[in-house]
Design a protein around this nucleic acid. Structure first.
Length: 412
RNA sequence: GCGGGUGUAGCUCAGUUGGUUAGAGCGCGGGUUUGUGGUACCUGAGGUCGCCGGUUCGAAGCCGGUCACUCGCCCCA
């Protein structure tokens, strides 16, 4: 038995859990469709560069969490760690640059070789949206509003807070980065080990360090908002104004940063404190540089991705198996006679199951277990008259009817 | 990748300072009910005590390793 198990951080989805995933997915796809985002699907593996180029070599996703392998033709491939790069690649590939804006939604499995935790798996599912070809801040607002409506649809907004920030454009960020490094170098001996390492790899990441000593230092660090150039500043103000206009509540957190290289300007996260340390439930931002990093033309984009497992941990819903009708015969030889009856019911859109084994007592127990509403009973008493005993399992009422009458009753 | 916790039946858990046939509740099977369920009662099956090794006359309980889960860090949805 020991050998028969899933690999670490990769789980089976039994009906009860899958049902919750599907609730999340359907809510997301539906609201996306209303916002006129069209569903797209890209392969779960790509040439490695599709991910390594845009994500950046400073990101752990690329350096230590990847599932890279060579196939039989020696191509270096990678299981996708996120959705955006593949969607943008598909967009470029299909020549849709000629036809912007394009609005996409997607969902599917992603893969990261991480240490598993609750709400963090090695194979996990994300649902996301991407709006390509619009540089206007309106697109950012639209996308956040879509995410907000999605979470509202799942009735989770009272447990989730929206935090936003801006990273500015490349110029602003570069200036800020220099100022930040300059400031932090003064505290180099007091910073945590992780942060000293970040100082050379990804200094902005120090801003959301959880180390209490780091936080004291960060408290007085330069503020990104002071380094924004005019354009970046206006753009951020527009977004705040737009969210206000939609009555979407948010906090500005100057220390909210993004780990992936392709982000710029708007960054946002919907976070809950119900899932411990894995509280980010939906997050995204603007990624104007991504298309170019992939070797395409300069196409702006903004989007988000949400963790399906994390959201499904938060929704309360139980999968209860429902069956419209069960069919049972008195003896095993009656099962053959029930087969065409069941087929007819199914054609009428009625969810049916023949209970093949056991005596009537056992068959009724089975009927209860699968939550059947009605039973069609065929025994020696009925068979000659071409009728059935039709029993309402909730009320216990039984009547003798022919098949047409039964179907009529079931469809009323 | 780093640090802490946990691991006994399908599920939730008991198991006294190591002592002989490892328990309970729920669930599952059979029966009370040879054409009728959801309740009740009776009854049965199911565990190499995560895995490997060590200490011991003797290990579910101690020690070491390993795997998985879990909490935090890293990172991220």
């Amino acid at each position: 038995m020991e050998k028969l198990r899933t690999v670490r951080g990769v789980h089976d989805l039994l009906p009860n859990e899958l049902h919750k995933h599907n609730i999340v997915i359907n809510a997301g796809l539906e609201i996306s469709d209303k916002y006129n985002y069209s569903q797209i699907e890209t392969p779960i593996f790509e040439f490695s560069e599709v991910f390594t180029k845009p994500l950046g070599m400073s990101s752990d996703i690329v350096t230590k969490e990847n599932y890279i392998f060579k196939d039989r033709s020696e191509d270096e491939l990678m299981l996708r760690p996120e959705g955006t790069s593949g969607v943008v690649r598909a967009f470029l590939n299909a020549g849709l640059v000629q036809d912007v804006p394009q609005r996409f939604s997607y969902y599917g499995p992603m893969f990261r070789y991480e240490r598993p935790q609750k709400g963090r798996l090695r194979q996990f599912k994300q649902i996301g949206v991407e709006c390509l070809g619009l540089s206007s801040s309106m697109a950012d607002i639209e996308v956040i509003s879509l995410g907000h409506d999605f979470l509202n649809k799942l009735d989770l907004l009272d447990k989730i807070n929206l935090t936003i920030n801006t990273l500015g454009d490349f110029e602003s960020r570069q200036k800020y980065r220099d100022a930040l490094i300059n400031y932090l170098k003064g505290y180099q001996t007091k910073l945590s080990k992780d942060s000293i390492r970040r100082l050379s790899i990804n200094p902005l990441r120090i801003l959301d360090s959880k180390d209490p000593d780091d936080q004291k230092i960060i408290k007085h660090s330069p503020n990104i908002l002071d380094f924004l150039n005019f354009e970046s500043k206006i753009r951020f103000e527009e977004i705040c104004k737009g969210l206000d206009h939609l009555n979407i509540k948010y906090n500005i957190d100057k220390n909210l940063v993004r780990g992936l290289d392709y982000y710029c300007h708007t960054a946002f996260e919907f976070v809950t404190n119900e899932l411990g340390t894995q509280g980010t439930v939906l997050a995204g931002g603007r990624y104007d540089g991504l298309s170019k990093m992939l070797g395409g033309s300069d196409i702006p984009g903004v989007g988000w991705a949400a963790g399906i497992e994390r959201l499904s941990l938060m929704i309360s819903s139980e999968f209860v198996k429902q069956t419209d009708v069960v069919l049972m015969g008195q003896a095993e030889s009656f099962n053959y006679l029930l087969l065409p009856i069941m087929k007819k019911l199914i054609q009428e859109g009625i969810k049916s199951e023949i209970i093949y084994t056991g005596n009537f007592s056992k068959k009724f127990k089975r009927a209860n277990k699968i939550n059947a509403s009605y039973a069609i009973i065929l025994g020696e008493e009925e068979i000659n008259d071409k009728i059935f005993k039709f029993k309402n399992l909730k009320s216990g009422i039984e009547e003798l009817l022919n098949l047409d009458q039964i179907i009529k009753k079931l469809k009323n």
